[in-house]
């Protein structure tokens, strides 16, 4: 329990820190946020009035404390570009992003670990080098470029998949999704709206593949390297000497012991997925937080940027926390430091 409390307090500290850095960046750097709000044509008097309404005339530490208090109360301010409450925008868009991350992570885990294991089995052979090249290409490819290529090839030329969006536009009219949890794909499934589910999955494949490339590369290399290391351990040799079957050794001993580092890398790559969605959603017009974030950055929508940063930092913390939890479950030597 004590460990949990320590974790929580250090997490809170990190969040304070993250919000403080963003806040400082937003305020110290001279671009005037009020200009972004009313546009460059406003008169000086209008700008001054707005600065008072937005509280920008007060000293920066006062502004920061006020900002923290309001954020804590759930008042995250209004987006300068959409004029909607930030929290509302984030709540509306987060599910689409989380669904995308879920599928990308699943692709990366399944293909990454499977191909890593396969490469380890055929080490030094042709299959091994091929997978090595695939993995290193995966971590070297700009997500936005891969996205455009897949779009051009599979949506443009071959028309196998739709190019953009999470669902067909007509779906809203002929098979509307009943809102239950707010996760559109999940909701369509539990309400039996299978037409929408298939449509959503069809739209999911290209963006999820694009987003998963980096994690796939990391995971397959990690899985291969760890498996090979474990296979050269003494206990594996002993097991062989006892005459245990290769299959048993491979799955029960080797894979089980290669698991902890794989979990760590999964967490690490999940963190990459958070910012990865910015670019993938931008390319595929995905209605999630990523595309909202890019628009906020481009229009210097500072309340939105601060909200998104906070959500991303929370997501990052949560991922690390979950990784530690799983780690302590599968590896009894690890308990949260």
């Amino acid at each position: 329990m004590k460990i949990l409390r320590n974790r929580l307090s250090s997490a809170l500290l990190v969040l304070f820190g993250a919000s403080f850095i963003t806040f400082t960046l937003a305020r110290v750097i001279p671009s005037d946020p009020s200009l972004a709000y009313i546009g460059p044509k406003a008169t000086a008097a209008e700008a001054a009035k707005l600065r008072i309404t937005l509280g920008l005339d007060q000293p920066i530490p006062v502004q920061y404390v006020k900002y923290l208090a309001q954020t804590f109360q759930g008042n995250w301010g209004y987006s300068l570009s959409t004029k909607q409450p930030i929290l509302q925008e984030i709540r509306d868009r987060l599910p689409a992003t989380l669904e995308l991350i879920f599928f990308a992570m699943s692709f990366a885990l399944i293909f990454g670990v499977a191909l890593g294991v396969y490469a380890a089995k055929y080490r030094g052979k042709f299959q091994d080098s091929l997978i090595r090249i695939l993995a290193i290409a995966g971590v070297s490819m700009p997500a936005f470029w891969l996205g455009l290529l897949l779009q051009m090839l599979f949506a443009g030329r071959l028309t196998w998949f739709p190019a953009t969006g999470q669902f067909d536009i007509e779906l809203k009219y002929d098979h509307p999704i009943t809102k239950v949890t707010g996760f559109p794909l999940f909701d369509s499934m539990i309400t039996g709206n299978y037409h929408a589910t298939f449509n959503g999955l069809h739209h999911m494949i290209l963006p999820a593949l694009t987003l998963s490339a980096y994690s796939f590369g990391l995971l397959s290399r990690m899985a291969r390297a760890n498996l090979l290391e474990v296979m050269s351990q003494d206990y594996v040799k002993v097991a062989r000497a006892y005459g245990l079957s290769e299959r048993l050794i491979f799955f029960k001993l080797a894979l089980r012991n290669a698991l902890p580092p794989i979990v760590t890398v999964t967490g690490l790559s999940a963190a990459y997925l958070i910012t990865g969605t910015f670019f993938v959603e931008q390319v595929y017009n995905w209605p999630g937080i990523g595309s909202f974030a890019v628009n906020a950055l481009l229009s210097i929508d500072y309340p939105a940027i601060m909200g998104i940063t906070l959500v991303a930092a929370i997501g990052y913390l949560l991922t690390n926390f979950i990784v530690d939890l799983i780690q302590s479950k599968i590896d009894p030597r690890v308990w949260m430091k």
């Binding site: 990190v14 750097i29 963190a271 990459y272 910012t275 950055l297 481009l298 930092a313 990052y316």
Partner: peptide, 20 residues
Amino acid sequence: ELFLSFPPLLLSLVAVTFLG
């Protein structure tokens, strides 16, 4: 640690936005 509490690239994105 504070600087590392952001997901990769996010801090750069935010910083370059405000720097211009």
